[in-house]
C-alpha cells in the first residue's frame, strides 16, 4: 500500500515537472513571439489594417486590397526605419535594437519584400492607388536624400518644427488610410470621407505627440521642437485633450447630418474615450511605451466596436 502511494506520488511529481517544463517552454515561446510582434512593428500592421477596415466600412465601399497594401507598407516603412536607425536608437531602445541586429538580414529582406508586394498589389487599384502607395517611400527617400540635397535638407528640417513634424506624419498616414480604399474602389472623395480624414488626421497627430512626452529631454537636446518641449508636459496634456475631444462635436455634427453611420460614430467615440484615458496618464507614469502602444492599439477596439454595433443593428 505504502509502495503504491509512493509510486503514485513519484508519478505525480514527474507529471508536475513535465507540465512545468512545458509551461516554461510555452512561456519562453510567448515571450519571443511578443518581442517579435512589438519590435518588428508587426502590431502596427494590425493597427493599420484595422484603421483601413474602419474607413472601408465608414465610406461604404467594398472591401478591397487596400487594408493588405496599407499593412504591408506600414511594416516596410516602420521596419525600414528601425533598420536605418539601429545605431542611433541603441541608447533609447536597447532591446529593440538588439532584436533588429539579431535578425537584421531577415527583417531587411522582409521589409523590402513587403514594400515590393504592396506596390504590385496597389496596381490593382490603378495609378492613383500606386501613387498613394509610393508616397511613404517618396517621403522616406526625401528624408534621407542625398540625390536632392537642398530638398532633402529642407524636408528633414520639417521634423524639427513644432506641430509641422507631427502634422506631416498625421497627414501622410491619413492620406494612405483614407484615400487608398477610395482609389481601389474608384470612389469619389465625399463629405463623409472628409470627416473620416479629419478623425484620422487628429488621431494620428495625438498618437505622434504621445511618445514625445517620454522623449522630451532627448528631443530638446537635439533641437527638435515638440509640444512637450515647448509647452511642458501638463500643457501638452491639455492640448492633446482639447484636440481629441474636439472630435466629439465633429462626429455629433456628422451623425446628425447623416454623413456617418451610428456604428461608426459609436466606434470612434469609444476610441476618443480610450485616447482620453491614455492622455490623462501622460507624465504620470514611467511606462511611456505602454501608453504609446495603448493609444495606437485602440484602433483595434474601434474597428471591433464598429463591427459589433453594426452586427447589433445600431
Amino acid at each position: 500500500m505504502s509502495n503504491e502511494s509512493g509510486s503514485l506520488s513519484l508519478r505525480a511529481e514527474n507529471v508536475q515537472s513535465s507540465y512545468r517544463a512545458l509551461f516554461e517552454v510555452a512561456l519562453s515561446l510567448f515571450e519571443r513571439a511578443k518581442d517579435a510582434f512589438f519590435y518588428s512593428s508587426a502590431y502596427l500592421v494590425l493597427v493599420a489594417i484595422a484603421e483601413v477596415v474602419t474607413v472601408t466600412y465608414a465610406l461604404s465601399v467594398e472591401l478591397n486590397a487596400a487594408p493588405v497594401v496599407v499593412g504591408l507598407v506600414t511594416f516596410a516603412v516602420y521596419m525600414g526605419d528601425r533598420i536605418a536607425d539601429v545605431d542611433t536608437d541603441e541608447l533609447s531602445n536597447p532591446d529593440q535594437c538588439a532584436f533588429v541586429r539579431r535578425h537584421y538580414r531577415v527583417l531587411s529582406v522582409l521589409s523590402a519584400a513587403s514594400y515590393g508586394l504592396a506596390i504590385a498589389l496597389s496596381m490593382l487599384g490603378g495609378p492613383l492607388a500606386l501613387a498613394i502607395t509610393l508616397l511613404p517611400g517618396a517621403f522616406w527617400i526625401l528624408y534621407a536624400s542625398d540625390w536632392l540635397p537642398s530638398v532633402g535638407a529642407q524636408f528633414s528640417r520639417l521634423k524639427d518644427v513644432l506641430v509641422v513634424n507631427s502634422a506631416v506624419v498625421a497627414a501622410a498616414w491619413a492620406v494612405a488610410v483614407v484615400f487608398l480604399p477610395l482609389a481601389f474602389a474608384d470612389a469619389a472623395f465625399t463629405s463623409t470621407a472628409a470627416v473620416v480624414f479629419a478623425y484620422f488626421f487628429v488621431d494620428t497627430f495625438v498618437n505622434t505627440e504621445i511618445p514625445n512626452v517620454g522623449d522630451r529631454a532627448a528631443d530638446e537636446a537635439i533641437g527638435v521642437s515638440t509640444l512637450p518641449v515647448v509647452f511642458g508636459v501638463a500643457r501638452t496634456r491639455q492640448i492633446l485633450h482639447a484636440l481629441n475631444l474636439a472630435l466629439v462635436p465633429l462626429l455629433g455634427f456628422a451623425l446628425l447630418a447623416g454623413l456617418v453611420s451610428t456604428p461608426v460614430t459609436v466606434g470612434i467615440l469609444v476610441g476618443v474615450a480610450a485616447v482620453s484615458v491614455v492622455v490623462s496618464f501622460l507624465g504620470r507614469t514611467d511606462n511611456g511605451r505602454l501608453l504609446s502602444v495603448a493609444s495606437e492599439a485602440k484602433s483595434l477596439l474601434v474597428v471591433g466596436v464598429v463591427l459589433l454595433a453594426s452586427t447589433a443593428g445600431l
Partner: peptide, 25 residues
C-alpha cells in the same frame, strides 16, 4: 508582370539601403 514589379521594387529597396557602396545608386 506583378511578380516582376514586386521583385524589382524589393531589390531596389535592398540596393538603396546599401548606399553609398559602389554600384548601389
Amino acid at each position: 508582370l506583378f511578380l516582376s514589379i514586386a521583385m524589382g521594387a524589393a531589390a531596389a529597396i535592398l540596393a538603396w539601403r546599401e548606399r553609398p557602396e559602389p554600384g548601389a545608386t
